[in-house]
Simulated scan of single mutants.
Amino acid sequence: MRVLAIESSCDETAVALFDGGSGELLAHRVHSQTDVHAEYGGVVPELAARDHMRRLPSLTRATLTDAGLGYDVIDAVAYTAGPGLAGALMTGAAFAKGIAASRGLPALGVNHLEGHILAPLLGDDPPAFPFLALLVSGGHSQLIEVREVGDYRLLGESIDDAIGEAFDKSAKLMGLGYPGGAALSRLAEQGDPTAVPFTRPMVNRPGLDLSFSGLKTAVANAIAAGHAHQDVAASFERTVIDTLVIKLTRALDQTGLDRLVVAGGVAANRPLRQRLVEMMADRRGAVHFPEIELCTDNAAMIALAGYRRLAAGERDAQPGFRVRARWPLAELELPGALVGSTVAVTP
């Protein structure tokens, strides 16, 4: 089964073509809307939806051209149905459903978070189930016990700012522009990670929840106190990583798992990767990351997640679709649970 996938949950427009039979990602493309939103200091939902509308047709043609194939090879269409910005999701969903309807193909709305969690399965060293997942994307920070595709147990999550938000907001305080997370990490390479003694948030409390809004405030105070920006950046990054290591250690001990998956945009952070590789080596376990280009929002992960569920018989009802600005992983079912029926959607 060859699956064409569309991702439009926020400020990246992405298309991918995945061959489920061979397990090969045939082609994928991502267009970033950074230039569209930079002058506003953050994502403007209406502009995001409009840019998706402009980019999707040409990006789809380019992806198929990259694969050396045409629309006639597509067996099914997957698209991001949530969570995300409602208008952006609707644009991608309508485009995907239009392709499916015009060619008489099955289509399926995919959970964006499930896509991130499964993204490492596209790598050369895919993790075996079960594993502990650390999902650290722009708007989500969650610790999840993953027993199988669709079998997820939330262990802890951010009670305020997600890690990606904390990176971006702290970068903005330093005048690094939008998006600032990657710029903050580059600046941190020039600083002293011990220069500012930030408190590691919530590590002295039981449980696995996370909190980073207070750390963001501490960054503002450190800047006001005259600390060099590079030292603030380095100390902030070290504090975030230390906090995650403590929480992950607790989660691994609690679940008894020895495999860790780290996914989402922050999973591209090299100091975080290095620290977690060392941590899992000390525990005689393994850690798996997506390829760097598959850490941020992309359609390859949507294609894989969609394939797993389409192959088990899941389908959208035709012709309608439903998008969800909020769609917790806990609401997902195991693939195959709906075999022989269709997934109910709102026309």
Score class of each variant (00 low, 15 high):
V3S: 04
L4S: 04
A5P: 03
S8V: 05
D11H: 02
T13C: 12
G21R: 13
E24F: 02
L25I: 00
V30Y: 06
H31I: 15
A38Y: 08
P45F: 06
L47D: 01
L47Y: 02
A48I: 09
D51W: 01
R55K: 15
R61S: 13
A62W: 05
P83C: 06
G84M: 11
G98R: 13
A100H: 10
P106M: 07
A107K: 02
P126T: 09
P126M: 06
F131M: 10
L135Q: 03
G139D: 04
Q142L: 14
L143E: 00
R147Q: 12
G150H: 10
Y152N: 06
L155M: 08
L155S: 00
D160Y: 14
D161C: 15
D161E: 09
D168N: 11
A171P: 07
Q190E: 15
P193G: 06
T194R: 14
V196S: 11
R200N: 04
P201S: 03
R205M: 12
D209C: 01
S211Q: 07
F212Y: 15
G214Y: 08
V219K: 07
V219L: 11
N221M: 07
I223F: 03
H227E: 13
Q230Y: 06
D231H: 13
R238H: 14
V240E: 00
D242K: 11
T243G: 05
V245R: 15
V245Y: 00
R250F: 05
G256K: 08
R259F: 04
A263F: 02
G264S: 03
V266T: 04
Q274C: 00
E278I: 03
M279S: 11
A281M: 01
A286F: 09
L304W: 05
A311I: 09
D316A: 01
R322L: 13
A325Q: 13
A325T: 14
A325Y: 04
E333P: 02
L334Y: 05
V339N: 10
S341C: 10
